[in-house]
Amino acid sequence: MSPAFLYALVGVGLFTLGLYALIVHAHLLRKILAINVMASGVFLVLVALAARTQGAAPDPVPHAMVITGIVVAVSATALALALMLRVRAETGRAELAEEPLE
């Protein structure tokens, strides 16, 4: 057990926390926040597991993947927010309907 595993477990916790919020909240902005928390959890697991080198510098390949992932996550968030504003403009609400609109 090393600090790397502690952070990996925190990452797992963040992932499920985000998944729970993604399912239970109806507001789209909250769903976007939840997806971002899930992404942070995945990044944390990746980087934490890359640090399992005894004393040496950590594995740079997951680091590069996570940097790419952070930039992709922010662009996906921007697109999702634009879609949410469009949903708001079309239906007058920023939430998913609990029962289908007829």
Partner: peptide, 28 residues
């Protein structure tokens, strides 16, 4: 039910993480 399922998921993922070898240089 959702909380129970997510608890199982967390436990499974946590177990998977903890059973990984503690030293793995990967591609470094």
């Amino acid at each position: 039910l959702l909380v129970a399922l997510l608890f199982v998921l967390t436990a499974g993922l946590g177990y998977a993480v903890l059973t990984l070898p503690s030293q793995a240089p990967g591609l470094s």
